[in-house]
């Protein structure tokens, strides 16, 4: 996977806050800060992994980048165009360039729609192909993701989870996008099928020069598939590094704990595990200062009052921590 240093998508201080309503008048009482100030450059041809525990805002980040959620604050620059305030009509040509693969292959397909029709839909909206050409293209897509031509007429319930995820992938690449957000595309699948889908994603990337934003909680899959990895905690950036640096030299205490917590499929080797105290704090009422200080093993007084700066400690390796 060759990554040239050309920025495809630039995300600047993006925030997404969801209002929490309550009381008789349903007034806004609070905000859930799902994504709270993310600044990123996504390079052409790379796979950028976004990892973190549930509730850290990684999925919301993916959805916000695609314009599926409105921005609370910040800027989105795609291929040099600032698209943050575009109307939906202005956005249409950009939507063609950005697609998404969803987590749950059971929920993301319409049970009453034939597979052929589901794949054709994006072609109707975004291209001027005739119905014959569209059919041709759909058959080619089915072939490309490892399905058969006779699957054109079938309904989603006739497919297994792995096959449905292949359909989801075919739908995402149908209009030749350059950028795909994969939101936990393999978490709902069994391990043997999971490996098949990972392989497919990799082959397609090579063939079409795709750029992926790969949202996942599975650090093994991320190491296998990604070039760079962003670790998020409570909507904020914790560490960003090229994949080998992050796994061999994790610097933020949260990244360290996350990596040490993964159960390894090897026996006999007892590793020292960093135990984190307690649970993830509520994102509607995040701790002051460093968001991680309540669970951090090396937290000092400073961490609870002052927000750590985002700084580069090595080439391409960024962290937000006072102590490291």
């Amino acid at each position: 996977m060759a990554v040239d240093e050309q920025v495809l998508y630039s995300v600047k201080n993006v925030k997404k806050h969801f209002p929490v309503r309550g009381g008789i008048l349903q007034r806004v009482k609070n905000h859930v800060k799902a994504v709270d100030g993310i600044t990123l450059d996504i390079y052409k041809g790379e796979t950028l992994g976004v990892v973190g525990e549930s509730g850290c805002g990684k999925s919301t980040l993916g959805r916000t980048i695609l314009g599926l959620e409105s921005l609370t604050e910040g800027e989105l620059v795609f291929n040099g165009n600032n698209i943050s305030n575009y109307s939906s009509r202005q956005l249409k040509p950009f939507k063609k360039e950005m697609q998404m693969i969803f987590q749950d292959p059971y929920a993301s397909l319409n049970p009453k729609q034939r597979i052929g029709d589901a794949l054709e839909e994006a072609l109707i909206i975004h291209t001027n192909l005739s119905s014959l050409e569209r059919r041709e293209r759909v058959l080619q897509l089915l072939n490309e993701v490892g399905l058969k031509e006779e699957h054109y007429e079938r309904y989603p319930h006739e497919f297994s989870g792995g096959q449905r995820q292949r359909i989801g992938i075919a739908r995402a690449i149908s209009i030749n996008p350059s950028f795909i957000v994969c939101d936990e595309p393999v978490s709902a699948l069994d391990v043997s099928v999971q490996a098949q889908v990972i392989k497919l994603l990799r082959d397609l990337q090579e063939k079409h020069g795709l750029t992926y934003l790969f949202v996942s909680h599975d650090l093994g899959v991320v190491r296998h598939l990604c070039n760079r990895v962003l670790v998020m905690y409570l909507g904020q950036m914790v560490e960003l590094a090229p994949v080998h640096k992050l796994y061999e030299n994790p610097t933020h205490p949260y990244t360290e704990a996350l990596l040490s917590a993964i159960p390894r499929p090897t026996v006999g080797r007892k590793r020292e595990r960093i135990r984190l105290k307690g649970d993830l704090p509520s994102p509607s009422n995040p701790p002051t200062g460093c968001p991680f200080h309540t669970r951090c093993p090396i937290a000092q007084n400073k961490c609870s009052t002052e927000k750590p700066a985002w700084r580069e400690i090595d080439e391409g390796h960024f962290i937000a921590c006072h102590e490291r």
Binding site: G162, V191, S192, A195, I198, G220, H224
Partner: peptide, 24 residues
């Protein structure tokens, strides 16, 4: 063997992922 070879190894970047063909 197939099951063990289809889990990506976190500690080994060169790990060769080998999916089992087909499904259950």
């Amino acid at each position: 063997k197939g099951l063990l070879a289809s889990v990506p190894n976190v500690d080994d970047p060169e790990f060769d992922l080998k999916p089992i063909v087909g499904s259950m």
